[in-house]
Amino acid sequence: MSRSAIAPRPAVQWRADQAARPFERITPRETAVGLSFDGRPHTVLMATPENLGELALGFVVTEGVAKAGDVTAVSIKEEEQGVLVDVAFAPGVLARKARPRNLEGRSSCGLCGVQRLADAVRPLPAVEEGVCIRHEAIPIALAALEEQQALGRLTRATHAAAFFTPEAELVLVREDVGRHNALDKLAGAMARDGIDAASGFVVVTSRCSFEMVEKTARMGCPILVAVSAPTDLAVAKADEAGITLVALARSDGHAVFAGGKRLIEAQAELV
Results as ranks from 00 to 15, higher is better:
E63N: 03
G130S: 07
R122A: 00
V235L: 13
A56P: 03
A11G: 06
L183S: 05
L183N: 07
R207C: 05
A11H: 03
A66G: 09
P222K: 11
A189V: 08
G253K: 02
A73G: 09
L170V: 05
F164G: 00
V12R: 00
L172N: 05
L263G: 02
G130Q: 08
S251C: 06
C112L: 04
I264W: 09
V85P: 15
E54V: 00
L117D: 15
K237H: 13
V203G: 08
L170I: 12
M212G: 02
V177D: 12
R29K: 11
F201P: 05
F163Y: 09
E147T: 03
M1R: 04
A247D: 14
G34I: 00
A247P: 07
N51T: 04
G253A: 01
R116K: 00
G53A: 01
A126I: 14
S2T: 15
A229R: 05
R192L: 12
E30L: 15
S107T: 00
V83G: 10
H42W: 06
T27G: 06
A258I: 12
G130R: 03
L145C: 05
R99N: 11
R218P: 02
R207W: 09
F210V: 11
V131L: 01
A141Q: 07
E24K: 10
A7I: 11
H42Q: 14
N181P: 08
A198T: 07
L270E: 02
G105H: 04
R25C: 10
A229W: 04
P49G: 08
G58V: 03
D38M: 00
D252V: 15
R153L: 15
A234W: 07
E167T: 15
E80D: 12
W14E: 10
R9F: 09
I26Y: 13
I133H: 04
L84N: 06
Q115A: 07
A137T: 01
H159Y: 12
V60F: 05
V227I: 13
A217K: 13
T158F: 08
P125E: 14
A137K: 11
P28R: 09
E167S: 07
R134N: 04
T165H: 05
A95W: 02
A160N: 13
V12E: 09
A157P: 08
V71Q: 01
C132M: 10
H159Q: 13
V256R: 03
M46F: 15
R250E: 14
E78I: 00
A141N: 08
P166F: 12
G242Q: 02
E54R: 11
I195P: 13
F210N: 02
A141H: 00
R218F: 10
L154N: 00
V65I: 15
V71P: 13
G113K: 04
G220C: 05
Q13E: 10
R96Q: 15
E30M: 03
A162T: 11
S206P: 00
R174D: 06
A162S: 09
Q115F: 07
G259S: 04
V131H: 01
A88W: 10
V61Y: 05
P22G: 01
G253R: 11
L145E: 05
A249V: 02
D86M: 14
A182R: 10
A187V: 09
A191R: 03
F201R: 09
K215E: 14
V203K: 01
C112G: 07
L35P: 01
I133T: 03
E147D: 08
E129G: 15
Q267P: 02
Q18P: 01
E63D: 14
P22D: 11
P49L: 01
S199F: 06
V127M: 02
F163V: 06
V131Q: 05
A16Y: 09
H254M: 14
